[in-house]
Design a protein around this nucleic acid. Structure first.
Lengths: 148, 148
DNA sequence: ATAAAATACTTCGAATTCGAAGCAAATATC
DNA sequence: GATATTTGCTTCGAATTCGAAGTATTTTAT
């Protein structure tokens, strides 16, 4: 039992350290993690409606508005109406934004991947499996408990 | 390589879900996670100087001031000068605070431990080991990179 | 066709957390 | 023993994120 609460703190701390690493890497490009997340998602998946960005990047739409509007100001993305559904906005990389994320991403990937060099393939696999299970259960319990 | 960035998101998401669960449980007692963390730490380790709370709970001391001052307002803890070192404040549970955390903790422990029921002992052990390694390396890289 | 409900997004205000700057006390250095 | 540095904490302002409420538009139900 004690063991399990310890496991919780280990997960939280590893995640915190990882976030710190991400932040330190990403801030070296002059972005914050959410901005980077959006750029990367658009880079790999193409233009997206706001609603989908929120869903996939797990952010409240009020937060997404803020983040995307900043990216628009910096000329990394465009935001335009969906002609099909006038309620909906699409977000897409500008040329500048695309060049930028393209120039950044490989370095980023290398730097981050480095932390898994301490694990064998099997260790990594099994860790991912376990974490998925725990994460899903936690999410389920957490959202059911609120009972909205 | 792709695999590794995926591993990152799995860690971050599991941790996010876990935090959500903690929050939802803890808020049912009328506390937030940091307040709970402080009360729990004092409960298990006895009175502590502010500086140690910061260190162990990984919080900036400005944040700790805020959290502890709120707990003082709610009469869960006392804050008093260390007679040995007049710069230092000690924080300790009040009787009320002790009764409170005592009444809460077992339930909390049960609820949270539940999420690990999906893992065998070995799975849990190996997950903890792997996460520790990754976490430590991430922390090291992150803090060296800043090069303070 | 009209009213009601749902969806997409924005705006606003609150919560949480942090870093930077500041003050006071203690310790080290000359 | 005076000065400089370190340590412990507080205050302040900024960043990030969220939920609630509001607007506009579309979809659904009557």
């Amino acid at each position: 039992m004690k063991n399990k609460l310890k496991a919780v703190t280990i997960i939280l701390r590893a995640s915190k350290s990882l976030e710190k690493l991400l932040k330190s890497d990403i801030s070296s490009y002059g972005l914050n993690t959410t901005e980077f997340g959006v750029l990367e998602f658009l880079y790999h998946r193409g233009p997206q409606p706001m609603s989908n960005l929120c869903k996939k990047l797990l952010m409240a739409n009020s937060s997404m508005t803020y983040v995307v509007d900043n990216l628009v100001k910096n000329n990394y993305v465009d935001k335009y109406n969906d002609s099909e559904d006038k309620r909906s906005n699409f977000v897409a990389l500008t040329e500048e934004g695309e060049k930028y994320i393209e120039s950044i991403f490989p370095t980023h990937e290398n730097r981050i991947s480095e932390v898994f060099s301490v694990l064998s393939e099997e260790e990594q696999e099994s860790m991912m499996e376990s974490l998925k299970k725990v994460g899903i259960l936690a999410e389920t319990i957490a959202t059911n408990k609120e009972g909205k």
